[in-house]
């Protein structure tokens, strides 16, 4: 307790039950996500326990969510800042193509990786400039660039899948380190970086301020235009990273397949994780829990042979449900 003056009640604070304090640290919201996750695991475990709990399947779930995980975390940052980026799926497609083409023509995985990250960043820069200086609503702006980026990916690849024949590059997608797939290591690493950045760094805290109230942020000396552009660049680079991971996993660059609908899942995960679409609220840990829920749901629906079309229904409903719950919470506090 600090030296803050309080005439009403000081003693009680310290006497609060330890369990309550722990719950508070994790956050009520994250606890309910854990409960939801447990329920899903219970359902699919009961129906297809034989397969579901096999280490192979659990690893599959983990692999399935790496790419989504990266996107959900960067989307969280964008949403916390009061924005939205629905072009990320298209940027992923675009970067798989550019990475594959770069490796094809130079043979160097390093060049491929740089090409993917730079192109992702450029795409983000375009978004950021349109939104910040063109004063276009973020949803509309990225809806437009989504179509543009997809178009560019098609033009570049001629609509074809581009195969990648570099074993070094493929190692990123299928290799293991200390028994764990490299992809999962990458997810863990980016998660730590994102969490420290958003929750602990001064820039991250300023992002909360910007999303919470841009007027206050501006009065407080935060250069909100620079922040906004920077955040979309970050989102583009993260999508570039996701594109590289996807290309490494599938061994090819493809304009659409594999990246379509990722924006929907990323936004769903972020909102499930406690992001308020008005901005100013949301955490990386929450987003990761949201991603886990989506991963288990996707995997479970495949195991229990839910037809693909119905899977789409489920995913769409989940997003809307997540927003409804988030709004409900917002109105109560």
């Amino acid at each position: 307790m600090n030296s803050l003056e309080l005439r009403t009640a000081t003693a009680q604070t310290d006497k609060r039950r330890a369990s309550l304090r722990i719950a508070e640290r994790i956050g009520i919201h994250n606890i309910s996500l854990l409960v939801a996750l447990a329920i899903l695991v219970l359902i699919f475990g009961t129906i297809r326990g034989d397969v579901f709990f096999s280490s192979r399947n659990l690893l599959n779930i983990g692999l399935g969510i790496t790419i989504l995980g990266v996107l959900a975390m960067s989307q969280t940052v964008v949403i916390v800042a009061g924005g939205l980026d629905i072009a990320v799926g298209a940027i992923v497609g675009l970067t798989t193509v550019s990475t594959a083409m770069a490796i094809q023509s130079t043979g160097s995985p390093a060049v491929g990786i740089v090409a993917g990250l730079v192109l992702g960043g450029l795409a983000g820069l375009v978004n950021g400039i349109i939104i910040t200086y063109g004063r276009v609503n973020a949803v509309i702006a990225t809806l437009g660039t989504m179509a543009i980026f997809r178009g560019i990916a098609f033009i570049m690849s001629d609509g074809q899948s581009i195969a990648i024949f570099s074993d070094t590059f493929r190692f990123i997608g299928i290799g293991r380190i200390l028994g764990l797939p490299l992809l999962i290591w990458i997810l863990l690493l980016t998660a730590i970086v994102f969490h420290l950045f958003l929750a602990r760094s001064i820039v991250g805290r300023n992002i909360y301020a910007l999303g919470g109230n841009p007027v206050v942020a501006r009065f407080s000396g935060i250069n909100i235009n620079r922040y906004r552009v920077g955040i979309y660049i970050m989102s583009g680079v993260a999508a570039g990273l996701a594109g590289i991971l996807l290309a490494a996993r599938t061994g090819s660059g493809q304009p659409v397949s594999g990246s379509q609908g990722l924006e929907l899942e990323a936004i769903t995960a972020a909102v499930l994780g406690g992001c308020a679409l008005q901005g100013g609220k949301g955490t990386i840990i929450g987003a990761l829990l949201g991603v886990a829920i989506i991963g288990v749901l996707n995997n479970g629906m495949i195991l229990t042979s839910v037809p693909t079309f119905y899977q789409l229904l489920a995913k769409g409903s989940l997003l809307i449900l997540a927003v409804v719950i988030a709004e409900y919470h917002l109105n109560r506090t």
Binding site: Y208, S220, G280, K281
Partner: peptide, 22 residues
């Protein structure tokens, strides 16, 4: 509307303009 981040803590609000010293 112009001064407070209503959903952040007292500490966050009061330390908003002194990033270097915090």
């Amino acid at each position: 509307h112009e001064a407070l981040l209503l959903f952040r803590s007292i500490l966050d609000n009061a330390s908003l303009c002194v990033p270097d010293r915090t």
